[in-house]
Design a protein around this nucleic acid. Structure first.
Lengths: 341, 341
DNA sequence: TTGAAAGCGGTACCAT
DNA sequence: ATGGTACCGCTTTCAA
């Protein structure tokens, strides 16, 4: 069906070797024949079979992306979408295809072993995932988002979660809040670990009591945020402010508060993490720790590309700065105790 | 590096042909040798090189997805995310990888010609895209979302846009609205064409005047929806209700109305299309035409799979039913003329 | 039931 | 500067 290198060779009256040379832009051949061959290739609507090329040249313009979640989960949380935007941008700039695999794989190595991708970006926050280690041991080109809390050998990119949580608490404390809750993700997640640490540091700096009862863990979904917020607001001693692990969950929390007749921010302040696009469109607009997810995605692709090309990474672990974005979901505490509806 | 069929053959003391047979589950061989070979393969952590296999067997477990937009655009609009959820689900069920390509390609055929995908799902609404025709002529397995308004040969899946718009107008008219605006997408889009038609049919049925001035076209982005809504609400004769081409834009429109001190739904009713996840989380929650995007994605993958397997499609063009979801962004017109802020 | 060998579409080495 | 050819990893006929 599709034109092959042989077709071109026949048409041009040269050998396949010559065609290959012309096509791969090797030097050491007359401009004439090259021109001629290129022209014929164009006429024949020829595209090299990347499989065949990959087979022999061990080079493939395909970046693998593994998200060990269902596609339903991954495409629900804007967090992934933002990262994907960044990866997609770099991929396009460098003419790379993107190969996806979602949950259900028994091995991350497989995609690579299958010969379908030159390297793999793993977007996963679990720190105890044996599949990552397995792939790394097999010397598969890998970049992790966000990577491990304690830096290991595998290249990674992430935003500064620790600093983000610290900044959030500092801001809230400055506003006068003394009971600040944390709706955190599961503790096998890098984000959760680092944000808890930053939160504690912030508390400490402002001489605020660390109260375990104000820390609730959940699955970082929107529904989960909704549910945990209800729980938080049913406490005997309701906090006046709450950090939520991501914007998506924060939206759930926001709705929960409003359902229970808490006014945001008068009765309770809410801060999210991420600053994904909808964060400014909620009611009230969400105060949040802006994390450059798009850039994280972009960098991860750039790093992976370097690795697959055998280049050295200037920096194995990139931690991108975050920023507090103040909107309308935070305010000084009112001091008024609000009845639970 | 990775184990190959040869390694297994050597280890098992058989020929590569026998190994291949065992691995591809062909019959006509002793269970003994097969068991043995399978065991060794497992021990060696063997995965077939899909490139090599694809090269000879012309079969590849990779579904191509082309979205002729930037990844930034595609991953911003939840519409795409929903479709991708569905495609991802089917892909996982059938053990297919997903290969993505975004804007910037000069040809849809390329991905296929490259030998990287068994077939391609094109998610694009432009009806005048020559690249689709080109790919189709080259006999590349193709499924279109949403396809063409006037059915052609290429398989397609879509929700019933026409009926959706009709239902929306009917509902609004029933509420007593007489000036119903349409914030529509560009008219080279199937969605826009069909929704305009459904809108007109609804108007006609309820003996409402068709007023060109109440139809604004834009790029279907959130910002665009915001901007066009401002324009609409600055009209001398402000409409009392407006249909917006998708939920994402509808959110922009909602915010615009509120910025201009229009109360939703008292002063103006808003209906979106899609019922994407955040639609119920806006303030007020959005009335919308629920379109089963996930199912559309799922079906498209299922159809493509059939085509690539050489099976006949029972139905070449699927049109999935839509449903009116009534929330809080719509109400009877107040009759009160509101000053523009 | 098993093996030898050709070939899928390329690349790259070694000749010429 | 160009051609012949081995080979990448796998499947598939044909023969044994």
């Amino acid at each position: 069906m599709a034109a092959t290198i042989k077709d071109i060779a026949r048409e041009a009256g040269v050998s396949v070797a010559t065609v290959s040379r012309a096509l791969t832009e090797k030097d050491g051949m007359s401009e004439e024949t090259r021109e001629c061959i290129l022209q014929i290739a164009k006429n024949l609507n020829y595209y090299p079979n990347l499989q065949a090329r990959g087979l022999v040249a061990k080079k493939l313009d395909v970046l693998g992306i593994i998200i060990p979640r269902t596609s339903e989960f991954a495409f629900s949380n804007p967090f992934y979408a933002e990262i994907l935007k960044g990866i997609g941008k770099k991929a396009r700039e460098d003419g790379q295809y993107l190969l996806f695999s979602f949950a259900g794989e028994d091995s991350y190595a497989r995609m690579y072993q299958h010969g379908l991708a030159a390297g793999i970006i793993v977007v996963a926050n679990r720190i105890d995932d044996p599949l990552i280690e397995e792939a790394w041991k097999m010397k598969i080109p890998l970049v992790l988002i966000p990577g491990y809390p304690q830096t290991r050998g595998i290249p990674s990119v992430d935003g500064d979660s620790f600093d983000g949580a610290f900044k959030a608490v500092e801001y809230l404390a400055g506003l006068g809040h003394r009971r600040i809750a944390l709706l955190n993700g599961p503790m096998n997640s890098k984000y959760s670990i680092e944000r808890l640490a930053g939160y504690r540091k912030g508390l400490k700096k402002h001489h605020l009591l660390f109260d375990k009862g104000l820390i609730l863990e959940f699955d970082a979904s929107m529904e989960g945020g909704h549910q945990k917020m209800r729980k938080l607001l049913s406490l005997r001693q309701v906090p006046t402010a709450v950090l939520v692990i991501n914007d998506y969950s924060a939206l759930g929390a926001l709705r929960a508060a409003q359902e229970m007749s808490f006014k945001v921010p008068e009765d309770i302040s809410i801060i999210g993490f991420g600053d994904v696009p909808f964060a400014s469109m909620t009611d009230p607009p969400l105060t949040t720790i802006k994390t450059p997810y798009q850039q994280i995605g972009y960098e991860s692709a750039a790093m992976l590309l370097k690795v697959t090309q055998g280049k050295r990474l200037a920096q194995k672990h990139r931690v991108l700065p975050v920023e507090l974005i103040i909107r309308k979901s935070t305010a000084p505490p009112s001091g008024r105790k609000v009845a639970v509806s």
